[in-house]
Simulated scan of single mutants.
Amino acid sequence: MLKWLTRIDATLTFLERTSVALLLLVAVIILVADVALRAFFGVALAWAAELTRYSIVWLVFIGGAIGARSGAHISIDVLGAILPPGMAHRLAQIAALIAAGTTAMLAWYGWTLVSQMKQFGQTSASLEWPMWVVYLAIPTGCTLMSVRFVQNALLLSKDARRLTAAQSTA
């Protein structure tokens, strides 16, 4: 079971990081090409700003999952610093579970928004892409973040048990 979960984690991490890298690459290439074409040829790509914006939106939501996995999200850890280590771990675990619940709720409402956008049939101005594809970044990113926060809570639980066992033998 642990081997299976480790493999899923590695695959998910690879997909998240690769997606973010590709989205950033697309945004940079399109932006540089648009600026170069404007500067040297006086030609602008009408869709460049839109594609760059949508790439960055997706990058931010998927990047949020990477941040959740690595514990890089903003947190207030003053209370954790003054509490005993075991209680600090429990507090961090509770915070991770609250974050997981919050992002799961955002994913749910994101799906509702995507469903509505799909029914409306709205398309983007320049690219004429269905807008639900852009809005799909919300439930996708929030679902990934929720999974990563639960993963952190489980890891913190394991660490807390190890810490408690070490304190009882000391």
Rank of each mutant, 00 (worst) to 15 (best):
A39Q: 05
L22I: 13
R17C: 14
L31E: 07
A33C: 12
A33N: 10
L37H: 05
V26Q: 11
A36C: 14
T18Y: 09
D34F: 06
V28L: 10
V26A: 13
I29F: 15
I30F: 15
L24F: 03
A21C: 05
D34H: 06
D9K: 06
L23E: 06
A27T: 04
L22E: 08
T13H: 15
L12A: 13
L25V: 13
A27M: 08
A33I: 02
L37G: 07
V20L: 02
E16I: 05
T11L: 15
A10N: 12
I30P: 02
D34P: 00
L25R: 09
A36G: 04
L23K: 00
A21Y: 02
L15M: 15
I29Q: 08
L24Q: 00
V20S: 00
L31N: 06
A21H: 05
L23M: 10
F41R: 05
E16S: 07
L24P: 01
D34C: 01
T13K: 13
A27E: 01
R17D: 14
L31S: 12
I29C: 09
I30D: 10
E16V: 07
S19K: 02
L37N: 02
R38C: 03
L25T: 14
S19L: 09
L15Y: 15
V20T: 00
E16D: 11
L12H: 03
I30L: 12
V20H: 00
F14V: 11
L12K: 01
F41P: 03
F14A: 13
V28T: 09
L22W: 13
V20D: 00
A10F: 05
A39H: 04
A36V: 12
L31H: 04
V28D: 09
R17M: 13
